[in-house]
Design a protein around this nucleic acid. Structure first.
Length: 270
DNA sequence: ACTGTTACCTGATTGC
DNA sequence: TGCAATCAGGTAACAG
């Protein structure tokens, strides 16, 4: 979202090409026509959604899914769009923005800005983790009574909005909490530790330009560099960096919870 | 109502 | 080298 601001904010969408009828969901009817000529007033983010406030009272709601990315280039250059460029926006500011998403788990919706509070994708979302209102008390209240693991609970966007599989592992490592721990037991001192751990992981990741797996990149083409800062994710068997190593600690463990890999240090995370 | 599993899709990597 | 199996940043729909 930050990488798109300069190209989009206060620019008019001069030309829009939509290459197919659906991504994760059917695309809005006549999407290209409805976007063409609109001015992008402001870009926002809510959870993992990019919201583009448009003129004439509508908002575009964009999710990149697992494999989605925005590819920025200058309009008029003859560089072809990459494969799977499903939606291509060109602005009056000479920018070309391609929504590229091989797996098509992403989405693009257009709705009346006035309906934002009731949009089905947005209505149930939990608090933004980087806002001051996300406190240990708020988190433990959301976790109270949950009969599931803290790992699954933190992935639940109704508990806290915007954490994904990588950052949950990283935050639990920093908070010294096992991903297997019952969610409801993360309260008091544990919640007091976990909330700052979540905030720190996200802030550092944003500052580093995000996590790039394989070829995932910033709109500018720069790679996100946070993957170099992963302390546990993808590091099964490696020493955690805190423990003395064998025989005291066997290093970072991997387990599968609700179909997703968790990485953690069984010795320091309880 | 709540929880865990499956399904949606392509492409890169791993293992035989 | 080639081919098949496995796995991947998410989340909605489904089953129990």
């Amino acid at each position: 979202m930050r990488g798109l601001r300069a190209a989009l904010e206060n620019h008019v969408l001069a030309r829009v090409a939509v290459a197919r009828a659906d991504l994760r969901w059917p695309l809005p009817e006549n999407l290209a026509q409805r976007l063409t000529g609109r001015r992008v007033l402001k870009l926002h983010r809510r959870a993992k959604y990019i919201l583009a406030r448009l003129s004439e009272g509508e908002t575009a709601l964009i999710h990149l899914g697992m494999s989605g990315r925005m590819v920025l280039s200058a309009r008029g250059t003859n560089t072809p769009d990459p494969p799977h460029a499903h939606i291509v926006l060109e602005t009056d500011g000479d920018a070309r923005i391609a929504f590229v998403d091989p797996r098509r788990f992403g989405s693009f919706d257009l709705f009346a800005t006035a309906d934002e509070a009731t949009h089905p994708r947005l209505a149930g979302l939990g608090p933004e983790p980087l806002e001051d209102a996300f406190t240990p008390e708020v988190l433990s209240a959301a976790l109270a009574g949950k009969h599931t693991s803290i790992k699954a609970a933190l992935l639940d966007q109704r508990v806290v909005a915007g954490l994904g599989n990588i950052y949950v592992s990283e935050a639990l490592y920093r908070g010294k909490i096992s991903p297997r721990r019952q969610a409801a037991s993360v309260a008091g001192a544990r919640a007091k530790k976990l909330v700052p751990a979540i905030k720190a992981v996200l802030q550092e990741a944003i500052a580093a330009g995000g996590s790039s797996l394989r070829d995932h990149v910033q709109p500018s083409g720069e790679l996100g560099y946070f993957q170099h800062a992963w302390r546990v994710y993808g590091r099964a068997g490696e020493p955690c960096g805190v423990c003395p190593g064998p025989p005291t600690c066997q290093g970072i463990a991997q387990l599968v919870q609700s179909g997703r890999s968790s990485f953690y240090c069984p010795r320091t995370q309880r």
